[in-house]
Simulated scan of single mutants.
Amino acid sequence: MANYLDETHRAEIVELSTTITSKTEWPTWLLLAGFYLAWTAIIFYGEVLGEGFTIALLVPLLVLWMSIQHELIHGHPTRWPAINKALGFLPFAVWYPYDIYRDTHLAHHNDEVLTVPGQDPESRYVSGTFWLRSPRYMKALLWANKTMGGRLLMGAPLAVITLVGGELAGLFHTKRNAWRMWAAHILSVGIVLALVEQYSAISAIQYLFMVSLPALSIAMLRSFYEHRPATLAQHRTVINESSGLLSWLFLNLNLHLVHHDLPGLPWFHLPKVYRARREQWIARNDGYVIDGYFQLLQKHLVNPVDCPRHPAEH
C-alpha cells in the first residue's frame, strides 16, 4: 500500500478489503454477467431492436467492456490471471488482443517513467528526435490529437494504425508466441463478427466502423488528459471528478491518481477512498484536478491541451 497514506486511511482501506463485497467481488461478477447477457440479447434480438437501437446500445456497452478488461488485468474478480484472462479474452471491442493490452498496461504502471516516450507504452507524447524528423502533416495530426475534437475523430484510427504497424513490423523478429496470440485473436474476432453478421440487425462492417471504432474513440476520452509530464511522478496523474454516465462506463478510472497509487483497489471502492481524503489526494498531485469531461470539452474542443513533444525532449 502507498507509504504516504496516513495510518487512519490505511486502516480504512484494509477494512474495506475485509468486507464481503471485497472478498467476493460480487459487483464485478455482476458486471461481467450483465455484459455477456446484454451483448447476447442485443445481437440475437437485433431484428426486434433494429439497426439504430442496436448501434446505440452496443457502443456504450463496448466502452464498458474495455473498462471491464482493465479490471481483469489488475487482478479482479479473481486472484488467478488465467481465469481473469478467460473471462475477458473474447474481443468484443475487436482491435486490441488481450495479451497486448495486459502487458503494455501493466508496464505503463511504472510511475517513474510515466509519459516518457519509448518507456511508457501508453505515452501520448513523442520524443524530440521523432518530432524533428516528422513531416508537417504528421506534426499537424499530433497537434490535432491533442484537442478533444481531434481525439474523438482520429484518436482511435491513429491508435489502431500504430498498433497494427508496430505489430506487423515486430512479428518477423519475434517468437512463435506472438504468432499464436494473433492467430487466436483473429479467430476470436472472426467468431464475434460472424455472430454479428448472422444474427444481429447490423453487418460485421457496421459493427467494426459504427460500433467498435466509435466505442474506442469514447474510451480514449479518458486518456485524453490523463497524464501530464511533470518533474515528480506523483504530479503526472490526473484526478477527474467526473460523475455520471462516463464515470460509470470508465468504472471510476477517471479518479486516475487513486488507481495508480492503489492499482489493486477494485473499481467500486475508488470513489469512497478518494472522498475520504480528497484534499490529501489533490495535494499529492499538486492540484492536477479536472471538473469532469465537459470542462475539457469547453476548453480543448479545438485548442490543444499541451504540446505533443515531451518537454524533457526539447
Rank of each mutant, 00 (worst) to 15 (best):
H74D: 13
G128S: 10
A107W: 15
A156I: 11
H108T: 13
I55E: 03
V211H: 03
I282G: 02
S123R: 01
I202R: 03
A156K: 11
G75D: 08
L245D: 05
W267C: 06
Y98D: 07
V126S: 00
F209S: 04
D111S: 10
E25S: 11
L87N: 04
E122A: 15
R275T: 02
L114P: 01
L141P: 01
I73W: 06
T40P: 12
V164R: 01
P117A: 15
W29Y: 11
S123W: 04
L132T: 08
T21C: 15
N84R: 05
A144N: 10
S247L: 02
H173E: 07
A183C: 09
M210F: 15
S203R: 09
I290E: 06
L251S: 09
I42F: 04
H109P: 10
S247D: 06
A204P: 06
I290D: 02
K23A: 12
G88E: 10
D291H: 13
L221Y: 09
G150A: 10
I290N: 01
A2S: 14
A230K: 03
Q234V: 02
E167Q: 04
V59W: 12
L253I: 00
L216H: 12
L187T: 10
F44S: 08
K23N: 13
S188E: 05
A41V: 11
L208Y: 13
P271I: 02
A82L: 09
G166S: 05
E122F: 14
Y125E: 15
R180A: 08
L158Y: 13
P157F: 07
L153Q: 00
M148E: 01
A204D: 07
G75A: 13
L58R: 08
M148W: 00
P263R: 08
D120F: 14
L30M: 11
G170K: 04
H74E: 13
P77V: 13
